[in-house]
């Protein structure tokens, strides 16, 4: 359906989406430096993907990130979090330990600082973004099936 409103929405969202994504990534990787972090950034990033899928259709959305990929990423993000915690144990400190486990702390205020926090935030970002996408797909697909059921 190529109505005008549709076109406006599509073009705008196509224009805006990359910026949103970049901003999301920014928020994620600056989680230890400024307000924000894995959850906020992930939510922003995930919203951009949802935006694309909403303004176009499911196939286009799926080209960006498919349902399966999203759910695998979701598990992977959470697993990464747990593994980071376990790495600390392997390094001889407590679970989820940071400096005491010997993660490099870097210079305060720099991007690569705060040791494991950075990694954890990153994994969290992946997890949250993919969760939002998965939720979206789940609900949308449920709607689709309901059309058949009625």
């Amino acid at each position: 359906m190529g109505t005008l409103e549709n076109q406006i929405v599509r073009i705008t969202s196509r224009l805006v989406a990359p910026f949103i994504q970049v901003y999301g990534i920014y928020v994620i990787i600056h989680g230890h430096l400024s307000p924000g972090g894995g959850f906020s950034g992930g939510a922003i990033f995930g919203a951009s993907l949802v935006l694309v899928a909403l303004s176009f259709n499911l196939e286009v959305g799926a080209k960006q990130i498919s349902h399966d990929t999203a759910s695998i990423l979701e598990s992977g993000g959470a697993l990464g979090f747990v593994i980071t915690g376990l790495v600390a144990i392997a390094l001889g400190a407590n679970f989820l330990a940071n400096q005491s486990a010997g993660f490099p702390m870097g210079q305060t205020g720099q991007l690569f600082s705060a040791g494991a926090i950075f990694i954890i935030t990153f994994f969290l970002g992946i997890k949250v973004a993919s969760t939002i996408v998965t939720l979206f797909y789940n609900i949308i697909e449920g709607e689709d099936k309901s059309g058949d059921a009625h």
Binding site: K145, S146, A149
Partner: peptide, 20 residues
């Protein structure tokens, strides 16, 4: 908030199914 969001999401997905 994260927790609230997840509960909301789950509740909404249940509502979708109830709607079905």
């Amino acid at each position: 908030i994260v927790v609230a969001v997840s509960i909301t999401a789950y509740a909404l997905s249940l509502i979708v199914k109830i709607y079905r």
